Amino acid sequence: MTSTTPAAPPSALDLPIPVRWTDLDAYGHVNNAAMVRLLEEARIAAFWQPPAEQLALGAPVPPAALPVGGSGAPVSTVIASQRLEYARPLGHRRDGVVVRLWLSRIGGASLSVEYLVLTRDDPEGRAPYVRARTVVVLVDAATGAPVRLAEEARQQLLRLQGEPLRFRD
């Protein structure tokens, strides 16, 4: 573990995410825009509740559902900021990656989501490929105004809270 990688909380989520052939750039590395999509897939898997009809068909239940939904839901999310720091190139991996995810801040209407992009041969996260943070804001889908996180959701999310990543200057 490097000095810029604090220990994730014991309850951090390790989410397997596939790396697709189309994620690669001309140099054979996962493209920076594709990396943002990999983080998005992890965030969706962790927090976004599928509609009831999809759950009935076997869609996975997220480990920590936010009070948001898809099209037509009263509450949605927007990304307020995103920072990625690449430690080394990531090539195509048939075994995919593991995105370790936790929360460093739970605000009134926003969350800071921390990520480490790892591979299965480095479960301790000693040499992550990417360190990242996304600030997610809950908003009223009709007006775009911030919506406070309900106390029940806040309590559920507290188990994922840990130290923020430290980035290079």
Rank of each mutant, 00 (worst) to 15 (best):
V36L: 15
V36D: 07
V36M: 12
R37Q: 08
L39A: 00
E40Q: 01
E41T: 04
E41H: 05
A42V: 13
A42F: 08
R43A: 00
R43W: 06
I44K: 15
I44E: 00
I44Y: 13
A45G: 09
A46F: 15
F47Y: 05
Q49M: 14
Q49L: 12
P50T: 08
P51Q: 09
E53H: 11
L55T: 01
L55V: 04
A56H: 10
L57Q: 09
L57R: 15
G58W: 03
A59L: 04
A59W: 08
P60H: 09
P60D: 06
V61I: 15
V61Y: 12
P62A: 12
P62I: 09
A64F: 12
L66V: 05
L66R: 00
P67W: 04
P67F: 06
P67T: 01
G69F: 11
G69Y: 04
G70N: 09
G70A: 14
G70C: 01
G72A: 08
A73G: 03
P74R: 09
V75S: 06
V75Q: 14
S76G: 13
S76F: 15
T77A: 09
V78K: 14
A80Y: 12
A80H: 03
Q82G: 14
Q82A: 05
R83W: 07
L84N: 07
L84G: 08
L84F: 15
E85R: 05
E85F: 10
Y86D: 01
R88L: 08
P89I: 03
P89W: 14
P89V: 14
L90Y: 10
L90G: 07
G91Q: 04
H92Y: 12
H92M: 10
R93V: 05
R93S: 04
R94C: 05
D95W: 08
G96Q: 01
G96L: 12
V98M: 13
V98Y: 05
R100G: 00
L101I: 06
L101P: 14
W102L: 13
